[in-house]
Nucleic acid binder design. Structure first.
Length: 262
DNA sequence: CACACTGTTCGCTC
DNA sequence: CGAGCGAACAGTGT
């Protein structure tokens, strides 16, 4: 679930709920998502407040008034929940932040593939992670340059966070489906003019997803995300949706209009 | 029960 | 040496 649009939704969610409120306590439970001692994370938060919420790719940064930032990555199953502190705690919450207004923010992660840490410099952090430019903020020229020097599958290239930060399996499939390109398309077979089109489609798909709060049910009916299962009817032509493995990821596509690339 | 599902990382290959 | 590739990682749901 958490690709760029989902994390952007978490960013807006955090921004509209928990900025400028004093953090009273922080509860942590032993969990491999912590990339530094949980006590250090608590020490950086208690008594302080969040002053802004930023995002690069699939990473969310909650800036603290001390200048430090809480870094949250959601892996495959993570999300945030802001709830009244007297209500029961959500399950699978390695981190719960309690504010002095009586509300809590829980970082929930069932499958433990996310990460939580504190950084003193977001720029520096993303440099260390070798994150590419965010998919929503890079311009077309930059995008073209990045794709032109890549090889291998188009799909794998788009999903590579070191090239472009933010696209994951679901939205990459969506872009290829809407472009009518084969999921097995190799970079050397992508025509130059197509790269600009892929850029525009990427923007359109991401913007649509963000506007619909990354909730598949709210997407236009003909989107692949509404029919990601083998045998479904294609929303674009009269073909059927198939499933194959590309670059080690399960890939959904229309067997008819995405046949052989273009 | 075997496998699907999501993203990143590590170690190997070219 | 850098880019690409595939397996491994966790754990719940089907």
């Amino acid at each position: 679930m958490p690709e760029l649009p989902d994390v952007e939704y978490f960013r807006i969610y955090a921004q509209s709920t928990c900025l400028h409120q004093k953090i009273e306590t922080v509860n942590t439970e032993e969990n491999r998502v912590f990339k530094m001692p949980a006590d250090d994370i608590g020490r950086n938060l208690v008594g302080n407040s969040f002053k802004s919420a930023g995002r690069i790719g699939k990473y969310l940064f909650l800036k603290i008034n001390t200048g430090m930032s809480l870094v949250l990555h959601f892996g495959m199953t993570g999300y945030l929940k802001y709830y009244w502190g007297k209500d029961s705690e959500p399950d699978y919450s390695p981190l719960i932040i309690k504010f002095d207004n009586g509300y809590n923010l829980a970082y929930i992660n069932i499958r433990k593939l996310g990460r939580v840490l504190i950084t003193d410099d977001v720029e520096d952090f993303s440099k260390k992670k070798e994150l590419g430019p965010d998919a929503m903020s890079l311009d077309e020229d930059e995008f073209v340059k990045i794709l032109q020097k890549s090889r291998g599958y188009l799909k794998t290239t788009l999903m590579n966070q070191k090239k472009i930060a933010g696209l994951g399996n679901v939205y990459t499939d969506e872009i290829l489906y809407q472009m009518g390109l084969s999921p097995k398309m190799k970079m050397e077979d992508v025509k130059n003019g197509d790269i600009e089109e892929i850029y525009k489609k990427m923007n359109k798909v991401l913007t649509t997803a963000i506007n619909r709060r990354a909730n598949p049910e709210e997407f236009p009916e003909n989107y692949l995300i509404r029919r990601r299962s083998p045998g479904s009817e294609c929303g674009i032509c009269d073909g059927k949706i198939g499933r194959i493995t590309v670059g080690g990821r399960s890939t959904y596509f229309c067997e008819k209009h995405q046949g052989n690339g273009r």
